[in-house]
C-alpha cells in the first residue's frame, strides 16, 4: 500500500509518502490510523487528533470506516485551503 502525507501531516510524519505491506489486522482507514499512531512517536504526534484529519482512498475523499486493501493509495492531510 502507498500512503501519502500532505501539508502539516507531511511535516509531522517527516515524509511525503511510504510503502507499507498492509498487516492483515487492518481492515479500514481507522485501523490504519490506529496502527500508524502506535507505530512511533511521529505517528503518535501526527494522528493525535483525528478530527483535524481528512482522508483520501485512491484519490477520492473517504470516511474513516472506508475498507482498505493492499493495492490502495491512502492519503492523510488537513482540511483543504485552496482557491
Amino acid at each position: 500500500m502507498k500512503i501519502c502525507y500532505f501539508a502539516w501531516m507531511r511535516e509531522k510524519m517527516d515524509m511525503a509518502e511510504e510503502e507499507l505491506t498492509l498487516p492483515t489486522t487492518i481492515k479500514t482507514v481507522a485501523d490504519l490510523m490506529d496502527f500508524l499512531k502506535k507505530r512511533d512517536e511521529k505517528g503518535a504526534h501526527a494522528f493525535d487528533d483525528s478530527s483535524l484529519l481528512r482522508v483520501a482512498v485512491n484519490q477520492s475523499f473517504a470516511n474513516f470506516d472506508h475498507p482498505l486493501s493492499d493495492s490502495d493509495e491512502v492519503a492523510f492531510f488537513p482540511p483543504v485551503t485552496g482557491g
Binding site: 500532505f6 501539508a7 483520501a56 492519503a75 483543504v80 485551503t81 485552496g82 482557491g83
Partner: peptide
C-alpha cells in the same frame, strides 16, 4: 465552481 473548489480540491496554503 469556486465554492466547491475551496472545499473539495486538495490544495494547502502555507
Amino acid at each position: 465552481l469556486m465554492d466547491w473548489l475551496k472545499t473539495k480540491a486538495p490544495f494547502w496554503k502555507k
